[in-house]
Nucleic acid binder design. Structure first.
Lengths: 203, 203
DNA sequence: ACTAACTCGAACACTTATGTTCAACTTAAT
DNA sequence: ATTAAGTTGAACATAAGTGTTCGAGTTAGT
């Protein structure tokens, strides 16, 4: 997938431009989902026309930036070891996922308002399935609650991380405390009724 | 606060218009945070010029609609009995809050992108404090966890409700199941480490 | 050194929104 | 019945964004 089969191979400066644009788009859209094409071009140190030369429309650009971010995230998440106690695996996964969610949450907003509905979900699907599998394993082993839908638990993990981003943004939470808060909350939320809440320490 | 001291008292038809505009704005913005003034005016069965006659700018209109919604919500929330077991009180509060969050979540988005930063928080402060007081009482009585900041727990309750809205929107959750999922999740998230997760039934 | 690919700014056409003005019409209040 | 308040659509001015075209300059590849 590294080299497309058709296209006559871009020139070196074009590749540099594209990379710069993609980076700038990711950065700009992460700060402001409504960032204009002009802003992004300027941030990339590139002319607006050049940008349109590589990305036919703003939507194409957002799509590319979002896909690029997902790919980055995918690599990071794949490195996480999901074996062993599902609760410990979850803690590890949260730790890694959190940084990604925090970085790209605003980019997601941009994507949501521009990309066709199915597109985002299909890009998310692969990493999401790893989460879902882990949760299902935990449910099967009886350490995660089964009285709520798996999809609900997936969403809960997601939204708790988003909450952390909001709290940090509002100055009510320190960045280095976020991971602990998230882990503690998600672990508690996943614990079956009647069971004891595990402390982070005794796992 | 019902009648402003100065203003020469609006005429009956003007009051009707304002009410219709406010309702239409709430409804339109709840469906689409970017709804245009024209859309809202049309939905209110009123001329665009008339609308501008009452609300100098789009921002003023959004502000008014949002404040109106908060006031509605405030009344509903104030009717909730917060005495007795904090966990039961929380369940009652969640039940009532959930409907409001569901109704107005998109309106909040509109407000966030238009209103000055402090404005939203100041409008939210009063109802939020009731939640915070309840949580603090639960923490003091030892039935809610104290190892996480109170503000974090408040935010968690909020974000879990938002998650429910998303899940419904995505078709992964039925509307009538939402309240139970939220209650179960929030109750679990608030339970202190080492304690057992309470089932909804045995409270 | 030659050429095709690439870059750039300026200018243009197009769209969509906000907010204002005007002049005629309708309605509520006393 | 009079009058002031309210309503209305059409037209206008502004502003900001998107996408395209053009012509001239630069740069990478062979």
């Amino acid at each position: 997938m590294v080299t497309q089969s058709k296209a006559p191979a871009k020139r070196a400066d074009a590749q540099r431009s594209i990379a710069a644009i993609l980076d700038a788009a990711t950065e700009s859209l992460s700060r402001n989902p409504d960032a204009s094409v002009s802003e992004i071009a300027k941030a990339a140190g590139v002319g607006r026309v050049t940008l349109y030369g590589h990305f036919p429309s703003r939507a194409d650009l957002v799509d590319a930036a979002f896909a690029h971010a997902i790919e980055d995230g995918h690599d990071a998440l794949e490195a996480v070891d999901l074996s062993g106690d599902p609760r410990l695996a979850l803690a590890r996964l949260v730790e890694s996922s959190w940084q990604l969610v925090d970085r790209f949450r605003s980019l997601l907003l941009a994507a949501q308002s521009v990309l066709p509905p199915g597109r985002i979900r299909s890009l998310h699907e692969e990493p999401m399935q790893r989460v879902q599998h882990l949760i299902e394993r935990g449910q099967a082993e009886g350490v995660f609650r089964s009285d709520l839908p798996t999809s609900w638990l997936v969403g809960t993990m997601h939204s708790v991380m988003h909450n952390a981003a909001d709290e940090i943004n509002a100055g009510r939470l320190a960045t280095d405390q976020a991971a602990d808060c998230i882990t503690a909350t998600v672990l508690a939320a996943f614990t079956p009724p009647g069971h004891r809440i595990p402390a982070l320490s005794d796992l």
